[in-house]
Structure formats: C-alpha cells, structure tokens
Design a protein around this nucleic acid. Sequence first.
DNA 1: CTGTTAGCGCCTTCAA
DNA 2: TTGAAGGCGCTAACAG
Lengths: 367, 367
Amino acid sequence: MSPRALGGGGSATGSTALPPDPDRMVGAGGIVEVAALAGVSPATVSRALRGLPGVSASTRAAVRVAAEQLGYVASASASALARGRTSAVGVLAPWISRWFFAAVIEGAQELITSHGYDMLLYPLGANAGPDAGPVDARALHKRVDGVLGLNVPASMPTDSLRDLRVPLVTVGSTVPGLSGVQVDDVRIGLEATRHLLGLGHSRIGFLGLDPDDLYGFTVAADRHRGYVQALEQAGIEPDPRLTEVTGWAVQGGEAGLGHQLELAAAAGRTLPTAFVAVSDEVAMGALYAARCRGIRVPQDLSVIGVDDHDLSYLFDLTTVSQPVRRQGRLAAELLLEQMEGGAAARPRVVQIDPGLVVRSTTGPPRD
Amino acid sequence: MSPRALGGGGSATGSTALPPDPDRMVGAGGIVEVAALAGVSPATVSRALRGLPGVSASTRAAVRVAAEQLGYVASASASALARGRTSAVGVLAPWISRWFFAAVIEGAQELITSHGYDMLLYPLGANAGPDAGPVDARALHKRVDGVLGLNVPASMPTDSLRDLRVPLVTVGSTVPGLSGVQVDDVRIGLEATRHLLGLGHSRIGFLGLDPDDLYGFTVAADRHRGYVQALEQAGIEPDPRLTEVTGWAVQGGEAGLGHQLELAAAAGRTLPTAFVAVSDEVAMGALYAARCRGIRVPQDLSVIGVDDHDLSYLFDLTTVSQPVRRQGRLAAELLLEQMEGGAAARPRVVQIDPGLVVRSTTGPPRD
DNA sequence: CTGTTAGCGCCTTCAA
DNA sequence: TTGAAGGCGCTAACAG
C-alpha cells in the first residue's frame, strides 16, 4: 500500500531532491558506455540489442548484461534521426471523451504498441473547422510513420492529405486511394428505419443531422440518407419537418425531441410514433426528454440508436451496432500493413457490417 | 465537400501512387535548403523560425518566406536530439474509454499542445498489474519531457518513479514529493454517506471496493474509508456485509446490488435503504439492477454516485461531483510548471474540492 | 546581427 | 562476426 500524505487539507509537500545515485544510474549511459562495459564497439551493441543477425550468441549475451546493468535504453530521437523513421503513429480524432472515439483508439492501441510504435494523440477539438488545417499535415509528416484518422480526413483539404507523405488509414470516413475501415452509414440508416417500419411505424422522425457536416463529415448525412431511402422504399414520403439537427451529444437528442414536440403542438398534429437517432447518445437524450414529459417508451414512442454504446443496455436501448473496438483493431492492422509493407501493400478498404440489437425502446405503434 | 467513393459495397480502391510533385514538394527540404533559398546560414534559419532574438526583421521575413515556400518544418527528432528535449509529454492511464480518464486527458490536452508539446498516450490496460513495470520508466525518460500519471503511480514501485528522471504529475493519487492534483477521496466517501445519513438513512451499503487496490490504487479504498468514518461519526456500526467489491464498471454495480439482494434474502433481512457507489458508472449499474427487479428509486432504495459523469443527469443520479476536466487542466499547469520552471519550481499538490449534486435517486427512507 | 564550428546519440555502409 | 568512419538534421557556443 502506498503512502498517502494528505489526510486532511495539507497543500504543499516538500521536495526531496532525488540524489543522483551513481551506482544504479538508470538511463544515464549512452550506447558507448554500454559498448565499453561489454568490451565491444557501439555498432555491435546496436546490432545485438536490436536482434539483428550477425552477432555471436556470447557477444549478444554480454551486451545484454551490460545494457541491463546500465539501464540502457536507446534514445528515440537519436535512432529516429539515424533511421529516418520515428516509430510513432499519430491518432487524429475530433474528441476523445466521446465514447466512440475512445473505444476505437483503445481497440487500435494494443496492436500499435505491440509493434513498437508510440501513439501520438491529436484531438482536433473545436479546431476541426474547415479552415484550420488540422495539426498541419506537414508537422505530422516528420513526426510519425503513419496516421490513424478518425472521422477527420474528409474535413481536410485533399492537398493536406497529400502533404502527409505517410500512410493514413481512416475510420468512419473514406478517402479514395487510402486504406480505411468503413461502415456503410447509409445502410445503418436503412436498417434502423426498416426495423421501425417492420414494427408497423409509418410516421418516423430522424434525430441527428450534424451542423458540422458542412465541412465534410458525412456520417450523419449518410445515415439520414439511409433513413430517407428506407421510407421511400416503403412508399412513404419523408417529411423534412420530422428531421432534427442535433449534433452528436446527449443534449442534442434531448433538445431535438423537445423541438419536435413543440412543432407538433404548434401544428396541431401528433408526434411521430418513432425516431431514428444518429447515435446512441442522441437516443439517450431523446429518451430522457420523453421520460420527463411522461411519454411512454415504447408504447407512445419508439427510439432506435446507433453504436451499441457501453451504457446503452442500461436504457434498454434498441440500436444498430457496430463493433467499435474491432474497427480500431482493424484500422491498426491496415496501418501496420501500409507502414511495414511499404509500397507493396496496396491500400484497401474494409467494410464492417452493422448489426441490430433489439432491446425494448422499440415496439409497435400504439394504434 | 469531399468525395465519398463507396456508395454501395465496393471493397478495394485502387492506389494512385502519389506522384512526387517537384514543384511544391512539401516537407522535402531540410534547414539547409531553406537557408540556401533565403541566402542565409542554417543557424539563422533556426533562430528566425523559432522566434529567437537577434535576428533582423528583414532577415526573419525572408527566412519565413523561404520556409513557407518549401513547406519546411523542422524535424522533431533532429531538434530533440540537438536540444536534449523531446517536446513531448507522456500520459499514463489505465484505460481511456472510461469517461473519467478521457475527460481528464481532454482537459489537459489544450494547455499541453498550446505549449508546443506532443502528447504520447500510454494506456496501461491489463498490464497495470503489480509486477508489470508500466511502460518501463526507462523508456519513457528518453522519450518525453514530462509525464502525466492518471491513477497509476501508486501501482509502480517507487524506484520506477525515480528512474523516470523527468517531472511527473499525478492525478487521482499522490506520491510524496511530486506535484499532483488531488481530490480527497476520504472526504468524497464522507460527503456521499453524510448526504444519505442526512436524509434519515441508517442502513447504508457501499458498492465499490476495487480488487485492484491490492496493488496500490487506493481511490476506492479511500472512498470506502470515508463511508466508514461517516457511519461511525453518526454512531452507526458499519456492517461489512453491506460492502461489495465491484470494480469500476457498470456491470460491477449491477452484480453488486444483485449480490446484496441475494445475501439479504438468504439471511432473511431486508436490503439496506441506501447505497454509496464508488463511481457514477457503478451507481448506474445498481440503478439498472434495481429497476429490473421493480425496486423503486428513491422510495425503496437511494443511490448516490461519484464523478458527475456526462450522462449522469439522464439517470437523475445524485452524485458527489469532481470537476474532471479542470483536474486535467490543473495537472497540465503543474506539469508545465515543472518542465519549464526547472528546479526552481517546487512540487506542489493542489486539492480539488468535491461538490454535491442532488438529483433524485436519493430521498428519505421508506419507513 | 550573422556565420562557422562542433556535436546531440545512434545507425549504417564499408572494411577487416 | 566485428570495428571504424561518416552522416541523419538541427542547435548551441563562439567568433566576427
């Protein structure tokens, strides 16, 4: 058990300057120190430690011992400079606190690091705008050997992608000529809507257009397109008044449903009997708004989301699932393929199939 | 609007090998090319571009133009090697898909990157065990100028922290002699429990001991200690049978409440009238379990969580809040202070005060 | 204010 | 199988 100093309200803890410990001065030595200790040349140390062939077993062992003893670890900068590779990959994402992105990153992480790459995180945040060239491609190109782009590339001018000059693998959006993991968002919208149609709904709304789609993030628009298609295929004329711009947050879903309610009241019509939400988070917001107003789900209102968020089952939320962590893993595979396979590895796009998880926020309409 | 190729189900996209564009060969040139183009020496380019003093305005402008024209960006590795600083900070966290950690990281990110540092992400994941020296301190020390440790340091042997040789700032746990952002977890447990006591509860359970506490992650244990103290101060003998080991996930909370139910049934007693959960996620799980069994909240059962998770309001969850994103920001400040202030900056610990957010999962007991 | 001179620590030919 | 020499691209210390 580790000591915890601040039982009450203390504030500043004294600094005991760590005394340099000449004995076990970890990480102090460079490759030449190791070489000296092992009685070989630096070149041999380099070869031995990296497992390159052409080093006798005994020499390798001796080098390992020396390195271990000195706590030697090669300087990343030095070796990157010498080799022209950084052993790092960049991860571009709009946010990381939205569950979807965090889960994708987590899915990718293991493979990435197990191949010896570090992961540089670049949350684009509010800067993800149309103008703000994200993290300046030029800067990235010298810093990483590859890039994982989550939902961002579409917002970059294509030039900026060119400037990258390192493999880029996308998740959630696709750039022609680049590897990527993709779910067919149109189909997601289609499936969600069909599920509701199949239950007998005919007045179905859509919560989730994304204002940011203005600059190329087409996920929401695609899902909406699927929704429209499904309706049309069922011979139903989509009513644009039933579509809300919500963004991706819970609050958007809440406000969206509220707004629909107002609209309906003002126009003297009733609320649609069901809604497709662009994400589970938006769906959760809608469910909350419904509950606050005493609208029963699914008797009075059905709601279906997208993602199968870790917390969705708590809401009994019916949803179109996508294997999020697996998408991350797949993206990592594609990226490694590009980085290590070199020009030999032709870019490829992997399609992920969405699933349907039926819980109990959807049911037949009331009448 | 960017082109999206895969309308239907296409799979592999052809690779158009990006043709080297000799005209605007971005990122191709080194500092010497820029120097040549600007008609100055490399040293001057370096000074000019980094905004160092002692460069005439006209020269600086010329250099900027040349650099811009060539799309020049300094190589991070080269400059790191030459300066002996990496301009990167490492972020150690058990996971990133748990909301708390993602939010802290997001909170820290802006300040970190605005000061010119990259963020290296090291999720410890399952490896966070007692033995597995996390990310090997020695490796980190050559790779980053500072480390942000989220809940991890306590699990590292202190030696390993020493070996780091770079500033380390902790969040959520404290190491003597190091800077850190801290919430008083004992007090959190105390406040949560007092809230329930204040409502008139006397049989109060605790959902949330963490099996991993075994190796030093004391947050859960501390909150539990606060719970025990509050009960004792109220003259109530804490009943160990009312404490569950749940870990941090939703599922733990669900299982924990279920187990309490079984225990109560087997012993022929009733469930406690209220529970303190170690986190909002655990509380959500417990609420779910209660709902599944028709237990009404808060009439039959009160539940209080900790964190004020982004989604907590959807559950009307009463909770002890901690300003999570601000913790991240503060930690970033402390870290920058250490990294840039050098030895002058003495380590300090910042206490964050928890708050109480009363919603409606807590209320007076039934009888 | 600017240029010259040495490295930073490692990797990689090329010889031995 | 091993060593010696040179360079990766940039920065810092010193001259001028």
